[in-house]
Nucleic acid binder design. Structure first.
Lengths: 225, 225
DNA sequence: GAATAAATTTAGCCTAGCCTAAAATCGTTT
DNA sequence: AAACGATTTTAGGCTAGGCTAAATTTATTC
């Protein structure tokens, strides 16, 4: 039951999925979609009409789109490809952490199901990618952890560092150089007032790292006991 | 100096290169190109005009095309991608010998130079692909061995099995199952008259294999001492 | 050298996705 | 409720790369 759609359709499904995750209000606006994909609003609008015809989304004119079950499967399929590839490129080929996203972005559209399976097996069927995001299972189930931005935490809070926004290579490099990787447990040990840095200790390291405003805002964490 | 061309242009360059190799007469006919690529002659003709404009080929109307230096580089670049990928898929991911070609066919167009280099390094900079065909070097040099079809040999002839035509998965499976791989030295030990099978011993195996007409015709060998 | 067969090119059309500019709709503000 | 700004949609066009059908050129055969 491979879903035969063009790579443009895959990109739209993926973007809609991601925007639905983010703003949990429901429908995704044409404008948000256009901006996300770097196309004009007119292009997004006409594509949305097509996606509706394909049964990928439900579109209420002027109201936005929602993924159908079928559309969700398209999105999760390509998301699985993307995240497996990121993991594979990082782990097996030593692609730098901040480059895996862009490489995976093009490969995800041409990965066959056979290759997907071979890669998953080679990696031992991993459940998270190098950014810490969950990899959908082969039957396209996924649990997105509920995360909050680290800059909203207070001293004494602790949890697990989940991921940093895909789109900032600089931050990925910065954290990578300090050995701070997704999955790490952490604890907030200090917080400066007036937008100053927040200090967090990761793993079992003795030393706490200062995390400035933009960085702390981009780091998503799962808060827990 | 990455050559920025569409994947259609890459496919044309690759096909022209391959046809130039085969029939060493010189120019490649529009018809042969069309048939090779599975498009109409009209499509090939209009694309050829475009390729000429891009400086990929020189086209003399009604006479055929010849790759330019630039076109040769496009072809060798994608050929390097293709053959490195075949090798990588077979060796690192265990893709069956008869499937590597089709997988590589789509991946070759989206492989970045960085990834190409990482893959080459991981494989130890191999010089032949799983079919026995030479892999162009990073600076796009290649030496295609002079081969003949095995069915033209006589008892007592010997040499090295180089490759079998890319396009026949059935033969690849058949040979693979018998442990006959590119690079193997061989010797002709018997030959039946009237188009009957030819018998060849491979490597240091004691037993000779019978190779029927179509198979022996598809197997390309380098004859030597 | 003329007729015909085969190869090649041209002409005209199609689809997917993108674009800009103009129209329509929505939501808000008076 | 009317008007304004923001969003969305429609209208019309563009490019890449296919297609078929018709014209043209080349090659061959009488």
């Amino acid at each position: 039951m491979t879903l035969e759609v063009s790579s443009a359709v895959q990109d739209y499904a993926k973007a809609i999925y991601s925007l639905e995750q983010r703003c949990d209000g429901g429908a995704v606006s044409t404008n948000a979609l256009a901006e996300r994909l770097g196309v004009s609003a007119a292009s997004a609008s006409s594509m949305v009409k097509k996606l509706d015809g394909l049964g990928i989304v439900e579109h209420v004119p002027y109201r936005g789109v929602v993924l159908t079950g079928r559309g969700m499967n398209v999105a999760l399929e390509v998301l699985r490809h993307h995240r497996l590839l990121e993991r594979f490129l990082a782990e097996e080929l030593g692609v730098p952490w901040d480059r895996v996203h862009d490489e995976a972005e093009v490969l995800e559209h041409v990965l066959s199901e056979e290759l997907e399976e071979l890669i998953a097996a080679k990696l031992g069927h991993p459940t998270i990618d190098p950014h810490g995001d969950p990899i959908p299972t082969a039957d396209l189930k996924i649990v997105e952890p509920a995360t909050v931005a680290m800059d909203g935490l207070e001293v004494g809070d602790s949890g697990r560092f989940v991921r940093v926004s895909d789109s900032d290579p600089e931050m990925l490099r910065y954290l990578g150089a300090r050995g701070i990787a997704p999955g790490e447990p952490f604890e907030i040990v200090d917080k400066q007032p007036f937008g100053g840095p927040i200090f967090a200790r990761f793993g079992d390291a003795g030393e706490a790292h200062p995390l400035g405003g933009r960085l702390a805002a981009a780091m998503r964490v799962e808060v827990g006991a």
